[in-house]
């Protein structure tokens, strides 16, 4: 179950999207996320879905692979659907027991689901098509201006990159510890909230011990390889804008304009 979380895993195929500068993809994702909140009608959502579909097609990442990442938010989507379905006032379609389902409710449930799915797919597409190192390079360079404000941009970027690398490892480890404690009769599934919280101790203590051990090891390995912060560091793949990136910026701008126009005129 834990291995199903694909968010943050790079999918190595060559595609126009993969080759884009990470700063473009970061900006694009940011714009996409903001723009989807502009959508308030069928056309707005349609444009958002269409845009995403085109980008996914260009990225050559199999749709099935991206959809797997949605399992992680299934519960949230379910909650959203249920809440919107039953708690939106308006024209009643039918009711179940004391809860009424309204036309507006159905509409909102559908829209919210589309919005959430688009959000997650859009954001995970970025991580599928961008190596975490490139992504952190993008953050480091794209947000480099924040250094003037004493924001430790390099350190934050490095931390993110390391976190991304270790998430799958710690996930697998969680799975393993859970199994090991289950073999000792631990029960993670039944009982009330308090009992469940208590049952987590045999899982969390070893997990933290292990995470700290890994952190110490990693710090040592980084030091041994002359790491001393971002100062004077060079890059194997330094970021350079090309014509393709400019074109992408134009497309993103056009998409944003389109979403704004739809919001104003429809």
């Amino acid at each position: 179950m834990l291995r199903d979380i694909t968010l943050g895993q790079y999918y190595p195929v060559g595609s126009p999207i993969h080759r884009l500068d990470p700063r473009v993809k970061l900006m694009g994702t940011l714009v996409y996320i903001v723009a989807i909140f502009l959508a308030d009608g069928v056309w707005g959502y349609a444009l958002a879905v269409l845009f995403l579909a085109v980008v996914i097609a260009l990225s050559k990442v199999p749709v099935g692979h991206i959809l797997k990442g949605l399992k992680a938010i299934f519960i949230i989507v379910l909650f959203t659907v249920v809440f919107n379905l039953f708690l939106t006032p308006g024209e009643e379609l039918f009711h179940i027991w004391k809860l009424s389902v309204t036309k507006e409710g159905v509409q909102r449930a559908v829209f919210m689901t589309v919005r959430l799915v688009c959000l997650v797919m859009g954001a995970s597409l970025m991580t599928f098509t961008t190596t975490p190192t490139a992504l952190t390079d993008g953050i480091e360079k794209g947000l480099g201006f924040l250094k003037v404000l004493k924001v430790p941009v390099h350190e934050v970027a490095m931390m993110m990159s390391i976190a991304l690398r270790f998430i799958p490892i710690l996930m697998e480890e969680t799975d393993k510890i859970m199994k090991a404690q289950s073999a000792r009769g631990a029960d993670f599934d039944t009982g009330g909230l308090v009992k469940k919280a208590k049952a987590m101790v045999p899982l969390l203590v070893p997990l933290f011990v292990s995470a700290f051990r890994r952190a110490t090891d990693l710090a040592q390995a980084m030091e041994a390889r002359c790491y001393h912060g971002g100062k004077g560091r060079t890059k194997l793949h330094p970021l350079k804008y090309t014509g393709r990136d400019l074109l992408a910026y134009l497309v993103i701008a056009a998409y944003l304009a389109g979403m704004i126009l739809l919001k104003i005129f429809l």
Partner: peptide, 27 residues
């Protein structure tokens, strides 16, 4: 009884005896 690889990484109680008691307690 199943003992995984590197089983020492599953120890969690502050004292050894309590940790060994974990299994039978769950029984």
């Amino acid at each position: 009884g199943l003992v995984f690889q590197y089983p020492e990484y599953q120890l969690f109680e502050p004292e050894i005896f309590t940790d060994v008691c974990f299994g039978p307690k769950n029984q």
